[in-house]
Amino acid sequence: MSVTWDSQILMLLTGIVGLLAVASLIGTILARRIGSDDGRAVVANLNARTKSWWVMTAVFVAALATGGVGSVVLFALLSFVALRELITLTPTRRADHRTLFWAFFVFVPVQYLLVYDAWYGLFAIFIPVYAFLFVPVRTALAGDTSDFLARTAKIQWGLMIAVYCVSHAPALLMLQIPGYEGQSAKLLLFLVVVVQLSDVLQYVFGKTVGRRRIVPALSPNKTWEGTIGGIASASLVGALLWWSTPFSPGAALLIALVINLAGFAGGLCMSAIKRDLGVKDFGTLIEGHGGVLDRIDSLCFAAPIFFHITRYFYT
């Protein structure tokens, strides 16, 4: 797996840095002008988020700069931390200990080794088949049968969401697209930029014009106005970035729309889990955002779909 840098990547990165600079500027102006206490809290959170975006961007770009290895390691660590956040909040029993050890220290590294090795055949089935079957067996051997189905299902679910789904993002680097060899880093960048931008724009539209809630019992922040505005505008940006991908402008629009819808679905499902567990955030690692899983919830759903659309239609 090798990744080359070209002028297009530099243009994309310049765009991201410019966007963040504008966000920081707006945040600074807002912080000076807003007077009410509620408004102040919102702006403080907004600025904390922007600051974290700078850090996340720096980490992501540094990983991309090292080529394939760095990206695989970065996403492996994200998976590890996301799984950690999810399992910490999920009640487990003493008998799950060894199964969990396998999940963290065998399945996570092996899945990402398969990504690095570009062994698609095993990458695609390792967790859905082998880990899926191993988890209940290992737990059964521990002998505690209370809540057996629920306990094994939670570990399987954690592995699927936090490890399997997320690993499809760096797996984009293994795709051999005719006429686009060695350029897949831009696909990874496209996926991350479009999906995360969609999150940001849904937040911005929601805060400014959001009125009608989609699922009031689940998330007070997800409104029709915010969601449609965010997804539509982020998809438009995706279309405008077509030149950095193997897609035509129309296809880029359509694909961006699909991954943004998937991302919305991801945010919705992860919110449902948080509601069920009685927590607001999965963690505290990223200031203003919550945990890693709070930040990548939409990516979890979007990455495998983006990977397979690209693989099916373009390789």
Partner: peptide, 15 residues
């Protein structure tokens, strides 16, 4: 007790 319970040698890295 979930990270390293009594009787286990290997830790599970929960928070």
């Amino acid at each position: 007790s979930r990270i390293l319970p009594k009787g286990e040698v290997l830790p599970v890295p929960l928070i």
